[in-house]
Amino acid sequence: MHQKPYILPFIFGILALICLTIAPYLVFMYAGIEKEMGLAQKIFYYHVPSAFSMFLGSFLCFIFSIFYLWKRDKNCDLWAACSAEVSLLFGTLVLITGAIWAKPIWGAWWVWDAQLTLTLILWLILAAYHMLHTYLEDAVQSARFRAVLGIIGFLNVPFIHYATKLWRTHHPEVVRGEEISLPPDMKIVFFFCVITFFALFFALLFKRVSLAKAQNELESLKAEI
């Protein structure tokens, strides 16, 4: 048996690479510089798409977790765990770039803004999912537990969203920087960056899945011997 040619990771990898070479050009050359926020506004082009990728990842984890419990297909568990891990990576990026954005604009590294808080709590849940993954022993049981946590964790998103929103409106002193209507050039660049990050997300996800599959193969081969 030879190393399987994984076609999808290759396609998404190429797509991500192409997008990644065009995106900086659009961000730095095409999009105008925002008057008030200056260059810090350009963080937005990578910050928000990262957040979208994070939510996409946790949503995929939720869907695959349901499918795992329903069909008991080992692959579903594998995909759920991998999308949670990639999602955790993007979540970390969102939090870091959020802090870097907040410092010049709001004057503090961290602001308890509703969206940022939502990201932080989701990140905590993803981190807990990751820890559960590493602290479990029995393979089949751990897959089931992961799926349960994947479902329970994602169901929490609407509650966190609603709670942080209510919480922030009760404390109006914090500056809110949402609902900026973008000029058309920025809008185009922003949409392109969203596509770029989705391509990047899938490229990393496929890569992660192929690693997990290789790991499984190695383990089963070792078990045979």
């Binding site: 926020m37 200056g38 260059l39 963080i43 990578y46 870091i96 870097i100 954005w101």
Partner: peptide, 27 residues
Amino acid sequence: MQHLEYMTAAYIIIWVAILLYFLSLSK
């Protein structure tokens, strides 16, 4: 050029993190 250092920091962190993650997966 307002806030150039913040923008550079953010972009470098994103690039490096994704690259490192990809490289570690490949390895």
